Simulated scan of single mutants.
Amino acid sequence: MTNFFKILFFCSMIFGTLITISSYSWLSMWMGLEINLLSIIPLLSDSKNLYPSESALKYFITQALASSILLFSIILSLNLKEFLPNEINFLTMIMNSALMLKLGAAPFHAWFPEVLEGLSWYNCLLMMTWQKIAPMILILYNCKLTMFMVMIILFSTIFSGILGFNQISLRKILAYSSINHISWMLASMLHAQMIWFIYFIIYSIITFNIVIILHEFQIFYLAQLFNSLNSSKLIKFTFLMNFFSLGGLPPFLGFFPKWLVINNLVSNQFYSLSILLIVFTLITLFFYLRISFSTLMINTNETLIYLVPKMNFKFFFINFITLSGLLACTLILNYF
């Protein structure tokens, strides 16, 4: 019975997102967002989560507020378009603000790390990947105010770097990392939609790889990370390479979408934005490297009694693709 209701609400959540991204009117897009919201609340209320009621309630209140602001702006835009054509920019800004609140972009981000802190790893994965699709595609349809978008991009990259600096919870670190990647995805939307799609797919694959390891070992804090990964050098190496890839270091696949975004920004003369993005992302990269070097180089005792969770062939195959993907991408793109 438990699995049946989870499957039902999971399918309903996917259905809501698909309604949103395939609709032709703003009202049906709003309906799709509401179906998506009402479907994920039972999934967040699962007993396996640390604080199921608290996380579900925080998420519901925030998303309901964003939905009401979005509906308000949609109704106003339908009524005022004939009478006040100059007010459309203001309404677009209200609509985009509601979508940014749904997305968790700074400065509307305060709910996102708090909600993730009370969830299991697979629910965190849903929040960091699938739940970003619908709001981002709506922003993609409505990406007209360049200055407003630039301010959101800068806020997201600055806040995520500074606030993620002193965290010891891996869920909060990945939440602030997600906010940082949101800023890069929004920057990719300014001129090229295809770059956003590539960025989102690669980000989802890398996050999926990291979350699988953390879920298998039930690691939630940095102190657990240092002790748990010592049992298998291969899993430790794979995990650290995925963290480097998430940070965007050049030999790995995570560098490829950032390379595309920087190239796109520079070719469209957004020089200052690209410089600020790179500089403030270095703060995020610093705490990735701090985690990775501590885990890799601190000499702790390895025990033979500890049972290592078995990681199957599919896991290592996906990780091999992730780690060697940059070489494949550069070779493929040379032929275009």
Rank of each mutant, 00 (worst) to 15 (best):
I152A: 00
L253W: 02
Q131I: 05
F320C: 11
P257T: 01
S47I: 10
F108R: 00
G16A: 03
F293Y: 06
S188R: 12
F313W: 09
I283D: 03
L119A: 05
L33K: 04
N268T: 08
L91W: 00
G161H: 13
F155I: 03
F237R: 03
A66I: 02
Q218S: 14
P85Q: 03
F237Y: 13
T238N: 13
S228I: 13
L163Q: 10
N3F: 13
W121N: 04
M128T: 10
Y271T: 12
L307T: 12
I275S: 10
I162T: 15
S204L: 00
V115M: 04
Q269T: 12
S23F: 08
L71A: 08
I278F: 15
F108V: 00
I61Q: 06
L57Q: 12
T207P: 04
L289V: 08
E302P: 03
W184A: 04
L282V: 01
N49K: 01
T17E: 07
G248H: 02
M95R: 11
I137D: 11
M185Q: 10
F5R: 07
C11Y: 15
E216S: 13
L154H: 04
S294D: 12
T303P: 03
N180G: 14
A98P: 01
I35A: 02
L253M: 12
Y306R: 09
G254I: 08
Q224C: 02
M93S: 14
T295F: 13
M185S: 05
V150W: 10
A187V: 02
S204A: 05
F15T: 00
